[in-house]
């Protein structure tokens, strides 16, 4: 009898233990579920905002929405409207509503060259009035690299045209440097002839003195004409030179302005292109030395250039 009583007591203790364990397990599961729900923002108060755009490119459901780089919400819905536009709804943590002014703007940005796209809410200038819940905000896309490249190209085309005009003026056979130099050369040749003639005539003293005087007179007359021609042409040459200098100065001013603007607007990643290329080369070089790629790629040997005694094919081009 006493043996059966002892057995019942043990069974009851075991059942009590099992019940306690199951209760604890259920409570632990509920706590975990509650933690996940809190983490997911189920109990967080949010406010909806929306915007409309022409294209859903780079916009997806769940995408982060930021203010000043801080994540404050996410895209809750992306839908195509009947008129072909795309409606995008966002859920923003209510704590951050105070930053969203009535003239705030949503901008789609890329993180770096190949980074993911994020939506950034840019508060407007008028801080006195906040946007109401469910308000529709303005939307824009940040300029990409292609747009920047096009901008730089558009700025450079007029400069290149100016340079082309200037070089054309300089190279002009009649009015440019070649023509001017040719005329100067003609004048120099005439002077040489004059000097040579004078030398010959000075040697022949005596009977040829009269002829010498006549020739000298002619030569001096020719020299006078040459100088007169030079005097006539000099102002024009100086004017043209001044024009060229003025235009060159304009081009330089323009180029300087563009360079300053480009320095401010070109993304840092482009400025660091050289460093990036060096890094890439380093990575490739390292990869080549890493197993198993190193088994396939041989170590570099000293390079030998093929002999070439006439690299520009100049033989026979004696012109």
């Amino acid at each position: 009898m006493s043996l059966l009583t002892q057995y019942d007591a043990d069974a009851e203790a075991l059942r009590r233990g099992i019940r306690r364990f199951l209760l604890f397990a259920v409570l632990a599961m509920l706590a975990v579920a509650a933690a996940i729900a809190i983490r997911q923002g189920v109990f967080r108060q949010t406010t909806g905002y929306s915007f409309v755009t022409n294209s859903a490119q780079d916009i997806v459901k769940g995408q982060a929405v930021r203010i000043a780089g801080f994540r404050v919400g996410s895209v809750s819905e992306v839908s195509l409207k009947d008129d072909g536009h795309v409606a995008v709804n966002m859920e923003i943590d209510a704590d951050y509503m105070r930053f969203i002014t009535h003239d705030a703007r949503v901008e789609l940005r890329k993180e770096g060259l190949v980074g993911s796209a994020t939506l950034e809410i840019m508060p407007g200038a008028d801080q006195s009035r906040l946007a109401p819940a469910q308000a529709r905000l303005a939307f824009s896309r940040a300029d990409g690299l292609a747009a920047l490249a096009n901008q730089v190209r558009d700025e450079f085309i007029p400069i290149l045209k100016d340079i082309k005009t200037i070089t054309g003026t300089l190279a002009d056979a009649e009015k440019g440097l070649p023509g001017t130099l040719a005329r100067v050369r003609e004048s120099a040749d005439a002077l040489n002839v004059l000097l040579a003639t004078s030398n010959r005539q000075v040697e022949g003293i005596g009977g040829t003195a009269i002829r010498l005087m006549g020739n000298t007179e002619k030569s001096i007359s020719y020299l006078g004409q040459t100088l007169e021609t030079t005097n006539q042409r000099l102002p024009g040459m100086l004017d043209r030179t001044q024009q060229i200098l003025d235009r060159t100065q304009q081009v330089l001013d323009h180029a300087e302005k563009i360079a300053a603007e480009a320095e401010a607007s070109v993304p840092p990643i482009l400025r660091d292109g050289s460093a990036a290329a060096a890094d890439a080369r380093e990575i490739v070089s390292g990869a080549k030395q890493t197993w198993p790629i190193s088994s396939f790629v041989g170590a570099p040997a000293p390079a030998m250039l093929k002999p070439d005694s006439d690299p520009r094919g100049e033989a026979g081009r004696a012109r």
Binding site: S285, Q289, A299, P300, A301, P302, A303, M304, L305
Partner: peptide, 11 residues
């Protein structure tokens, strides 16, 4: 190795 790579790349 870096010198050889630069030389080969130049070639």
């Amino acid at each position: 190795h870096a010198a050889l790579e630069a030389e080969n790349d130049g070639a």
